[in-house]
Amino acid sequence: MINFILGVVTSANYWFIVLRSTAPILLVTLGAVITAQAGIMNMALEGSMLWAALVGVIASSATGNAWIGLLAGVGVSVLVALVLGFFALKLDANAVLSGVALNLVATGGTVFVLFSLTGDKGISSSLPSKVLPALTIPLVKDIPWIGKVISGQNIIVYIAALSVVFVDFILRRFTIGRRIRATGENIEAAKAAGIDPVRIKFFALIVSGVLAGLAGCFLSMGYTSNFTSGIAAGRGYVANAAQVVAGGTAVGSIFAAMLFGLMDAMATYLQNIGLMPELIQALPYAVTILGFVVVTFVRDRREAERKRRLFASSTMKKENVGGM
């Protein structure tokens, strides 16, 4: 058993699969991070992914072009995010509930549309959909072990890696990032500073929609080559937990998503040797919760420590003043 796991963990193929299973989670986690930073929880990420996965397949098979499929998928995913924004920000709906509702609409709606188009409820294999290309990186592919892991991945995997930089720049380098965080932290103060919170939240939702759209298209046009019902498999929900593990930062998202990816890839492997697939499939979700708890625990401890210090230093100052 131990030997088997050691063998798996050192194989390049395992890490190849890890990166591949991490990519979609990473994309949606980044989406969850940016909306959470703006103070709105995008629970509809799951629905965004489902619609993107389906529409990507339909558009690519209709046009014969995977890129048009990707574009259409991302477009519909943004649309879902905008609908969430409309209900949550314009109609004062509870954002979490309307997100959940949009996921239900997506769960039922994607199967409904798939069945109406193909007569099949489970899988879109009758549609001649295209797959997004894999990239071989010229020099890297020749490096012994690393080349096998990093080169030859689907293009979305690389886009996911770039998205980390992109979201990190948005959040930390650009003015809009400061506005996003201000809106999320204290909406009244943001308003007083002349920021329109509704607009900022819409912006964050659109970005998260794009990211979830990429993730959704990857699932049906790269990770697998079909749309299957429920293809998102709760990744949109996992993202909202991983967002907390990520500590609300883009770089943290890598670790949070990796945690899920490692377990997910390990589950694929352990299943192959016939080791109780049910228990192993539960692993990624269980580990995410565990990470979730540990991170909030550590954060709370640190926060308490900081407050204690602040308190201590302020009382010390007072004593000094009294001494004078």
Binding site: A93, S98, G109
Partner: peptide, 23 residues
């Protein structure tokens, strides 16, 4: 020729309406 799953879609719509304070 209508898929049963459209019921899930309707359920989502019901929640959306009921969750909207403005409505």
């Amino acid at each position: 020729d209508v898929a049963f799953e459209f019921i899930t879609l309707l359920q989502g719509l019901i929640i959306l309406i009921l969750a909207s304070d403005r409505i």
